[in-house]
Design a protein around this nucleic acid. Structure first.
Lengths: 338, 338
DNA sequence: GTGAAAGCGCTAACAT
DNA sequence: ATGTTAGCGCTTTCAC
């Protein structure tokens, strides 16, 4: 079994408090004894128990982070941002993959409570039974601050850092209009998700502002996935009258769209122009230039963690929502053929 | 402050041990009292402290997982696998991103020791100063089993689950030969990494076995990145005499290669055929069919975690290395034009 | 079946 | 400057 503070104390012929002092360099301790203690620590290969310390301290130094899918670059980047500032500020992270699954999310929250996390960052999934919301409230009522990361839910009662989906879609749509397209469509994500709805609104408002005619059949109801996008695009491309440009609400759907276009022997942007939501690094790297709305996901993570720390220092801040505007990068796929 | 077991005991008019018993359903407790206790727990919204339990138990129930980069899908998938079995077996994960940085890795290992992890899964980075190796040995000497996940290092003294890079490259090369290519090259990864070296060997052995002539200038020394791959490919494509096919040691490099090919107005596989290492999902989804060697990364994670659990149960197993053969998926990019 | 008491490894007053 | 003494919240003998 590993050496304890007691072993160190005995070997260094001092009391446990002295050892504790050199460990945390708190309080006074003569240089001479400090060195002796340090030597013993080194010699016995002593590693203090964070567990015991936490119990005594009543400080776990741990932040819980819950995301729907670690493999999704979108969330992975947020985590990167969170990690960055957590490291810098000396917080440990307990990372949980809720797998888009309400039940798992709840178990996770349960477990995190038991771990006595000091704060929680969460990409909240839409809670049918409101169970998750209850957990979040429990956290808050127990003085565990909660900061929401962009996602389906946007509860006013908690701090949060969000992406401006509306604005991103709005700008993208204007860019398509400015490129000279007369008939423009949208492929939406699952409309049960907040971001998908906001993007749709952004699109519609932009169209209305510019007095563009909207056709109902130009709203393609996708589900964020590439497969459905493929089918929808194919159907659309076989119509007589159709949009010359599309705003596409997710990068996966852009991929499906592209497959449809290429299978029909058509090309981008000549036969169909588009702007997508979320970067498409891979495609840009091989020289297929995709115009996209780029959200600052890493920054979302950083800001959220910073906000959490602020709140840890001062519980009495009023809740705030930070909303980040995405960037529009035009690379050519939005162009209108003359 | 949260309710403690003591509060529950008082409110339920029983002793702390009884509460503890119902919490862990250990020992006997009358149905009636159990219900009363449960009721109080519910009412007081009690959540037991994992910290206190761990201290008492001397069991943290926690496994440390260290990877060089959470954002890299390669490692993200391993984590997915690890998570899967950890969840099922009731272990908590402490996930650390070492950022390919030796110093960070060491700090992380240090921190994990203090957290009293019961086991460690690590994608070890090449340790210049052997400091990491010392940490790993420390772990073992303190009865904390270590299982290596495929990566740069392959220390014989620890259990590990690896990918058969040699075999993958070997098979891919044979496939190119079978496709009818007479002159075949390779683009390597950073040769300081074990996988890159093994892949190179696999390529060379396959060439030799089939008595193919190898040209020194057909070994392109890449660095895993797309930028260098782009330059190397461009140079190669401008030569008079050159390979008609390439085995490319990473997916990022495939991307750079493709950009070079398309910029020169050439096409795949007509002007240059290839097989790459690591899947290229995105490209396959848009209908560019890339032949690749697919490693079973999720499985690496699963097997490693399972192995760790075995060792947790039985410290005295002899160390073993499990090596997984990747699959070759041919999708057309390897074809020879007639 | 249930309770009393000791102890897990550390910190934090409070003395000295 | 250093030691003494209580806990922190839980589990676990050992009694009864």
């Amino acid at each position: 079994m590993p050496a304890t503070i007691k072993d160190i104390a005995k070997a260094a012929k001092v009391s446990r408090s002295t050892v504790s002092r050199v460990l945390n360099d708190s309080g006074y301790v003569k240089e001479e004894t400090r060195e002796r203690v340090l030597a013993v620590i080194e010699e016995l290969n002593y590693s203090p128990s964070a567990i015991a310390r936490s119990l005594s301290n009543k400080r776990s130094n741990t932040i819980g982070v819950v995301v729907p899918d670690i493999n999704n670059p979108f969330f992975a980047e947020m985590i990167k941002g969170v990690t960055r500032v957590a490291d810098a500020e000396g917080y440990r992270l307990l990372l949980v993959d809720s797998d888009e699954n309400n039940e798992k999310e709840q178990l996770a929250l349960q477990a995190l409570k038991e771990q006595r996390i000091e704060g929680l960052l969460i990409v909240a999934t839409p809670a049918k039974e409101k169970k998750s919301l209850e957990h979040l409230r429990w956290m808050r009522s127990h003085h565990i601050p909660v900061v929401l990361l962009d996602g389906h839910m946007k509860y006013d009662e908690f701090d949060g850092v969000f992406i401006d989906h509306y604005q991103g879609a709005h700008e993208a749509t204007l860019a398509l209009i400015d490129a000279g397209h007369k008939r423009i469509g949208i492929m939406t994500g699952k409309l049960s998700s907040r971001p998908a709805m906001e993007r749709l609104r952004g699109f519609q408002d932009a169209m209305a502002e510019r007095k563009m005619t909207s056709y109902d059949e130009d709203i393609l109801f996708g589900d964020y996935g590439h497969e459905k996008a493929y089918r929808l695009t194919k159907e659309m491309l076989m119509r007589d009258k159709r949009p010359t440009a599309l705003f596409i609400s997710s990068n996966q759907m852009v991929l499906g769209m592209m497959r449809a276009v290429s299978e029909l022997g058509l090309s981008i942007p000549k036969d169909l122009a588009f702007i997508g939501f979320d970067r498409l690094e891979t495609l840009n790297l091989i020289g297929m230039n995709c115009s996209t709305v780029d959200a600052h996901t890493v920054e979302v993570g950083e800001l959220a963690m910073k906000r959490l720390i602020q709140r840890l220092d001062n519980e009495k801040l009023k809740t705030a929502h930070r909303v980040l505007r995405p960037d529009l990068s035009l690379r050519g796929s939005e162009s209108k053929s003359k």
